[in-house]
Amino acid sequence: MNLVLLLYDEVEEINATGSVLLPTTDRRARHIATVLKPKPGATIRVGCVGVGVGRASVCILEDGQVRLSPAASNDTDAAGRLCLSALPPHPHVELLLAMPRPKVMMRLWSVLAQLGLRRIVLTNAWRVEKPYFSSQATDPSKYTPEMLEGLEQAVCTTLPEVQVELRLKPFVEDSLDALFPTPNFLRLLCHPGDAGVPIREALLEAQARGAPPQAVLLAVGPEGGWVDYEVDMFRERGFVQVSLGSRILTTDVALVSLVALTMDGLSGLGSGKAKRKLPARAADALASLLPCC
């Protein structure tokens, strides 16, 4: 836990009364007391979903409760209030995911929140078992705590929006354009095999056609990929097929790779970065290995 997330009501209580008490049974209080072990007068990093990140003074009471209060500030206007600042925006990536096995999905909720996705749409597909959607993995009361732990790990306060669609074809035909309009979104179809291009190449091609995309939608199928009918349906909707190669990866491995590569590629386009140069020592070492012309 690299960030202690507070509820909005807890932030309001701090600003109204000067402090808030976390009971001994609260996992955040246990983490502060047993892992962080702050010294008297210390401050810790806190945040609130949808608001921002700041620092709060912490005091561990004799009964194990933890009191959080606003950290000392030189700003007289902010005195007595918890100051939270918005974090810099992450690259805008959203996910259309064929529902994996429930056990896998429960593991993924924290991972997807850590990666900084804005929206996660779970959908059915030919290779998806319908009972998956009646599992705890689609219950907000079960997956929201997992996502909050992911935010605490990544020091992020943006909770992904979650949407469940039980029928893929009607969703693609009726709702896709409204949620992910082009040209704002570059739509990428993630499917194993040699027919797809690398993600960076797809991003560069989109930039070459005009302005770089503001956001990316990744359509990730079940393990084994989408069936041919689904691939054709996505292509008709303007999806560009991308691939990580010929290997058929598990859903969790594929997702981390796809999202990380997409965010890195978007960051490069948005900042207008040129090709990265090797540090001088690394360039000299590489040159020594190359044959002289």
Rank of each mutant, 00 (worst) to 15 (best):
V253Y: 03
P212C: 06
M263R: 15
G41V: 07
A78G: 00
E165S: 08
L61I: 02
S175C: 08
K37Q: 11
T123H: 05
R276I: 00
L68T: 04
L122E: 02
T24V: 12
T158F: 06
F239G: 02
V11C: 07
N15D: 15
P140M: 11
A285M: 11
E94D: 14
R200M: 12
R209M: 09
K37E: 05
L108I: 07
S19C: 12
T17C: 02
A72D: 12
A154P: 01
V220G: 03
M106E: 11
P88M: 09
A283S: 12
L97D: 01
R81N: 11
G52L: 05
P183S: 11
P192M: 10
D139G: 04
C83L: 11
V128T: 13
R209G: 04
K277P: 01
P212S: 07
E152P: 00
F180K: 08
K275W: 14
P70G: 06
F171Y: 14
L269P: 06
S267C: 05
Y132K: 04
I199C: 01
L244P: 09
C292K: 10
H92E: 11
A283Y: 04
Y8P: 11
C48P: 05
F180Y: 15
R119F: 01
L148G: 01
L286A: 15
K130W: 05
N74V: 02
Y229S: 13
A78Q: 14
P40T: 11
A125M: 07
A16G: 04
Q214W: 00
P91A: 08
T251W: 02
L6T: 08
P183E: 09
S267T: 08
P145E: 07
P222E: 08
G268S: 10
T34K: 10
A113V: 09
V11M: 05
T34W: 05
L286V: 06
